[in-house]
Amino acid sequence: MHLNFKDIYYLLDFYAYYSRIKKDCTLANEIWCLKAIFAIEKYYVEAFYKLKRDNFYGAWCTFGHVETIYKNLFKHYNSTLDEFKINSIYEYTKQFQKIFPYTLFSSVELKIDKFKCNICGKERISYKRVCNHKIGELYCGKLCAQIPEGITVINDSLVENPMDKCTVPFINGIDTYDYGKIKTLISALDSPFDDWNFEITETSKTHSEFKHISGDDSCPCGSGKIYSECCLNKDEIIIKHLEFYVNKPIEEIEKYNHYYINKKM
Rank of each mutant, 00 (worst) to 15 (best):
Q97E: 05
T93F: 01
C120H: 07
K122E: 14
T93Y: 03
F105G: 02
C120S: 06
K116E: 15
C117P: 13
K85W: 10
I112H: 11
E109H: 11
I86Y: 14
I119K: 08
K116Q: 13
S106A: 03
K114W: 10
I86N: 12
F105M: 03
K85C: 11
Q97G: 00
V108Q: 15
E123K: 03
Y102D: 02
I112N: 09
S107H: 11
Y90D: 01
K94G: 01
K98M: 02
P101T: 02
L110T: 08
Y90G: 02
I112F: 12
P101L: 04
Q95E: 03
C120K: 06
E109L: 13
S88D: 12
I112V: 15
P101A: 03
K94M: 04
N118R: 10
S106G: 06
C120P: 10
G121Y: 07
T103R: 10
I112P: 15
L104F: 05
I89K: 15
K111Y: 15
F105D: 04
K111Q: 14
K111M: 11
S106R: 07
Q97I: 02
F96T: 00
K122H: 06
I112S: 11
T103K: 10
T103P: 07
Q95M: 05
K116G: 13
K98D: 04
Y90C: 01
I119A: 07
S107W: 09
I112T: 10
F100G: 00
C120I: 04
P101V: 00
I119R: 07
N87L: 13
I99D: 01
Y90R: 03
K98Q: 06
I99Q: 02
C120E: 06
E123D: 08
S88W: 14
F96I: 00
V108N: 15
F105Q: 05
K111I: 08
Y90M: 05
E91C: 01
K114I: 09
F96C: 00
E109Y: 10
I89M: 14
E123F: 06
I89S: 12
Y90K: 05
T103H: 09
N118M: 08
K85F: 14
D113G: 12
Q97D: 01
E109R: 13
Y92W: 03
Y92R: 02
K122S: 10
S107I: 00
N87R: 12
F100K: 00
D113L: 14
I86P: 15
G121K: 02
I112R: 08
E123Y: 04
K116C: 13
Q95I: 00
I89R: 14
N87D: 11
L104W: 04
F100I: 00
I86H: 13
N87F: 09
K116T: 12
E91S: 04
K122C: 08
K122R: 07
T103L: 08
T93P: 05
P101N: 04
K122Y: 07
C120D: 08
T103I: 05
E109G: 14
T93Q: 01
I89L: 15
